[in-house]
């Protein structure tokens, strides 16, 4: 087991003939991800790296049985691509595209909810179940199969933490980058619930950052519903208010969304917060030892 993706995932790459799409399709395939199709309007019939290209997502799903898709199209076209996948019957869409307008994502989330499609992103690095499926732009070589789940709003900070986990012999069940935008698809609580129900996951690392109150809500959820240990890290303690820190969602507005409030919420929920990323493996070991005692 694992969550969301595994070796049965049949992946469709939307925007496969673009520079990023082509590059990452090759990398995902080399990792062992089962890529069954790509799309690029007007380029149906071609092949990229041995992967058949179709004009539309609907055709790709019909001919190949794709159940998951990843989106590499430019931001202005991302909303349409997500909807195309959703209407084609794709169950899980991962949107890598950065810079998608918020209004587009509000509309998209409302429609895909009705269609029953799950979305991760946009503006995210994707997700990985080590040794089974890499769907995104994550560097596969730093991951190791194991029992730690990880959810994060950031990319390289995730790799930093995963690298430390792997070096400490703490492999991962599934690692999910949910993205740095204010309005996104699956979020902490959705994923915490999946990890709680996943027999392969023993503990979860939650990497948050300033902006919004999703971490506070996650803390509340953990206190009420999680039996598995959770450890966290919050980036942006030194961020000034009113300034967007790279991610569109990483902004302290009208005094809310500060790191301080989030850390306080986790402390209240008995979730240890690492002062620096390198403390995470140690905190996890402590929590796991207590849980197994």
């Amino acid at each position: 087991m694992s969550i969301l993706v595994n070796k049965n995932t049949k992946l469709l790459v939307q925007g496969i003939t673009g520079r990023d799409g082509q590059f990452h399709a090759g990398r995902m395939k080399a990792y062992g991800t089962n890529i069954v199709a790509g799309t690029s309007p007007g380029k149906g019939g071609q092949e990229v790296d041995g992967i058949p290209v179709f004009d539309t997502a609907a055709e790709a799903v019909k001919k190949t049985g794709a159940n998951t898709s990843i989106i590499f199209v430019p931001a202005a076209f991302a909303a349409d691509a997500i909807l195309e996948a959703s209407y084609a019957g794709i169950e899980l869409v991962i949107a890598i595209s950065e810079g998608v307008p918020i209004q587009d994502m509000i509309r998209v989330n409302s429609i895909i909810k009705r269609n029953g499609t799950k979305l991760i992103g946009p503006n995210c690095p994707g997700l990985i179940t080590p040794d089974e499926a890499l769907i995104g732009i994550l560097p596969g070589m730093i991951f190791k199969k194991g029992n730690i789940g990880l959810i994060s709003r950031s990319g390289t900070l995730t790799y930093e933490v995963v690298n430390m986990l792997t070096m400490n012999e703490m492999g991962q069940s599934t690692v999910v980058g949910i993205g740095g935008d204010p309005v996104a698809g699956l979020y902490y609580i959705d994923l915490l619930e999946m990890y709680e129900n996943d027999p392969e996951t023993e503990a979860v690392v939650l990497i948050g950052e300033i902006g919004g109150d999703a971490e506070e809500q996650a803390a509340e959820y953990i206190a009420k519903h999680m039996t598995k240990p959770v450890v966290s890290f919050i980036a942006g303690q030194t961020a000034p208010p009113g300034k967007r820190m790279g991610h569109a969602g990483a902004i302290i507005s009208s005094g809310s969304g500060t790191a301080e409030e989030k850390i306080k919420a986790f402390a209240k929920a008995n979730v240890p917060v690492a002062k620096e990323p390198s403390e995470i493996p140690g905190l996890l070991k402590e929590k796991l030892a207590k849980a197994n005692a």
Binding site: T156, A235, G246
Partner: peptide
């Protein structure tokens, strides 16, 4: 100077944690 927004924020925090003052947030991408 950092690659990635989350890591860039964590870097600023780290400087502060060890008693320094960061001059900026700067993400140079991948």
């Amino acid at each position: 100077m950092v690659n990635g927004a989350g890591l860039a924020m964590a870097t600023m925090d780290m400087i502060k944690l060890y008693g320094g003052e960061p001059a900026n947030f700067l993400d140079i991408g991948g």
